[in-house]
Write a protein that binds this DNA or RNA. Structure first.
Lengths: 170, 170
DNA sequence: TGGTGATAGTTTAGCTCTAAAGTAGAAAGT
DNA sequence: ACTTTCTACTTTAGAGCTAAACTATCACCA
């Protein structure tokens, strides 16, 4: 269980061998986070393709579903919650609207604002995929004990909070 | 320092509120890894843009540089080490070659194979950016104590090894 | 009331990626 | 030897994202 040396350790050792003095300390955390992130993303993409949705649309629908009744949010808020650019959300909304999963309409009161709401079809779709997706992803963490998962969550929470604070604004 | 509740905790609570029984256990790890990964990637993209290189080219050059003399690898091996598709590497190579950072030539012995080597200009470029980039990224982890970083690295190493083993093949 | 600047969304340009098709050389089986 | 299969790489089609330009509306205030 102790996990022997891996490719990432090799990268650190390679830099030290090639350029003694290279500041390699961050690699053990940052590179591993990227790799894990990529493996999880690829897995999620495959899972969602299998379930017949695309990953970005799922994220969108899940965000609206999670917001609770009336399952409606403005695009800017969705962008913020999904951590992607407003332009990306606008494009995602157009695609999802075309598939009949969401509907856009002008907000009352402010002529600039828009409200996006889940259609019954979009609600159904997320309802039928969320449990399957999350159950599957739980098995992906089965190499860690419950205690280790909590430890990991806690460390990541600290790091994420700091990075968020440090970020230009995004 | 204990890190209070964050957005990700809110996501878990929202699912539980909206759909009691939703299997939310994986969210604390997976969602945080994605968010951190994204923040780090965005930061790296900005840093590299500031230094006048693009992030993918930097990864390419770093991979060749780290391989040690003669700073040459076949495209397939680069793709494997950078964990992207062979097609992506082929395109990156074309761009980098156009900028004079690498050179492709046929391998001797096997007419299908290609060897990519760092040009002096590519070698210089990576040499002048790697320390700056890595030093900067070290500061991004300054919210964690050295001990916490080690803990985090170790947990991630276990998870990464398991996910690699579990992966279809890729 | 009319200008200045902020805010909400959308659109566009440019880039990069993946997946899949295409090209060409090497290996292997009969 | 010749066909099949495999392997290495490239190219193409299609998609998504970011950054930045653009449109429209609102808010403030002289």
């Amino acid at each position: 269980m102790a996990a022997p040396q891996d490719d990432v350790d090799d990268i650190q050792k390679a830099w030290i061998r090639e350029r003694p003095g290279t500041p390699v300390d961050s690699i053990g955390v940052i590179t591993r986070i990227w790799r894990i992130s990529k493996l999880l993303e690829d897995d999620r993409r495959r899972t969602m393709t299998r379930l017949g949705v695309d990953a970005a649309a799922r994220h969108l629908l899940a965000t609206l579903r999670r917001a609770g009744p009336p399952y409606a949010l403005p695009p800017g808020e969705i962008a913020r919650r999904c951590a992607v650019s407003p332009g990306a959300i606008s494009q995602q909304l157009s695609r999802a609207e075309e598939q009949g999963l969401v509907r856009r309409h002008k907000a009352e009161g402010d002529g600039r604002s828009v409200v996006v709401e889940l259609t019954p079809s979009g609600h159904d779709l997320i309802e039928h995929t969320v449990d399957e997706l999350l159950s599957h992803e739980e098995t992906l963490l089965s190499s860690l004990t419950p205690n280790q998962r909590t430890q990991l969550s806690d460390l990541l929470r600290v790091l994420l909070a700091d990075l968020n604070a440090r970020t230009p604004q995004s």
